[in-house]
């Protein structure tokens, strides 16, 4: 009886978004009297961080600090349209819509600044700290707070912008099945190192190595967090989550999440993650979606590592101690005594 160590890898190509019957997301931006740019969205942030990404895209495009951007996802009933939080689409669709809206708002902001400073809008630039200034004559400048005030009370202007990103509908060509279902694809590879106890059948994941090609990591900390949090979900799918192992009857199965097994903090492998960037032509600042794919590659990587460790080839999840032991028994039956 021994603890057998094995290593396996798996890769995933994952689509960003779907075309549905056409997949739009909209963004509206307007400046308040004090120069806060409110980004109105109907895109829901359930922890994946779309509010942060939308704020980054708006600030970058406007040429203003993050502190001048407020993302409001208040009400899907009255806000601009979004198809929803699914298909790893948020950063791509919403990011693009926000960039479009922010570019229009920036145009108006520079027009009003040109009026205020009595110069040509084409000669203006932003310094990223809140000032709009004449290129090459940096003392001729106006702060966005003063500018927004002047826009409202002096020039009668609304500094605002509209954006929409539409993934157009695509139907398969009947003869070939060819279609354009997604916007781009992110790629990843995970290597899993596991230990299989051949007496108990328990599989422990010791280490995960993750390499992700994400287009561009708009927020590297959040991208890494998504990769490693998602990998934990993959470990959970691979080894834990099931309604099945309750005997002798299905009636004995779990009725709620308190009886539904998931890995806890003591079951986590150490993870090593690398982000690779190959910007997507149609992505916001090159970003692709990596929401859902992060739970994918760890599962087959763990299955391959189990095979490497003990020769048991498992094809249905989760890889419970029972399935490992049955696999080991089957291998022993095959061996000549």
């Amino acid at each position: 009886m021994a603890k057998l160590r094995g290593r396996g890898f798996a890769s995933v190509n994952y689509p960003t978004g779907m075309n549905l019957g056409g997949d739009p997301s909209q963004a509206l931006i307007h400046a308040t009297t004090t120069g806060t740019f409110v980004v109105s969205l109907s895109s829901v942030d359930l922890g994946q961080g779309i509010k942060t990404i939308a704020a980054q895209c708006a600030a970058e495009t406007l040429g203003l600090p993050m502190g001048n951007v407020l993302v409001d996802t208040a009400d899907t009933d009255t806000g601009p349209h979004c198809m929803g939080t699914f298909a790893s689409r948020g950063s791509h669709r919403v990011g693009n819509a926000v960039i479009m809206a922010a570019a229009e708002a920036r145009g108006v902001m520079l027009e009003v600044a040109a009026e205020e400073l009595e110069v040509d809008a084409a000669d203006l630039e932003t310094d990223g700290s809140g000032y709009i200034m004449v290129r090459g004559a940096q003392d001729k400048r106006v702060h966005v707070t003063d500018l927004a005030m002047a826009a409202h009370f002096k020039h009668g202007r609304t500094i605002s912008g509209r954006g929409v990103y539409l993934k157009e509908p695509s139907v398969p060509v009947p003869e070939t099945g060819e279609m354009d279902p997604d916007s781009c694809q992110a790629h990843a590879c995970t290597v899993a190192v596991v230990e299989v106890d051949d007496e108990t059948g328990v599989v422990e994941v010791l280490e995960l190595f993750n390499a992700y090609e994400v287009g561009r990591a708009l927020n590297p900390a959040m991208a890494t967090q998504q990769v490693e949090g998602g990998a934990w979900m993959g470990v959970s799918h691979a080894l834990f989550e099931t309604t099945e192992p309750y005997y002798p009857l299905r009636d004995h199965g779990p009725r709620d999440f308190s009886a539904y097994l998931m890995p806890g903090p003591a079951d986590i492998p150490s993870q090593h993650s690398v982000i690779l960037e190959r910007p997507a032509a149609n992505g916001p600042y090159g970003a692709k979606g990596i929401g859902e794919m992060t739970a994918n590659a760890p599962i087959p990587a763990i299955a391959n590592a189990i095979f490497d460790a003990c020769g048991v080839r498992l094809t249905s999840m989760p890889f419970t101690p029972e399935s490992v032991l049955r696999g080991l028994d089957a291998l022993r039956m095959e061996e000549p005594c």
Binding site: E228, G229, A231, W232, M262, P265, I268, Q271
Partner: peptide
Amino acid sequence: VCRCTGYRPIV
């Protein structure tokens, strides 16, 4: 229970 982080950053 944490369903997002994978616990490691919390520890």
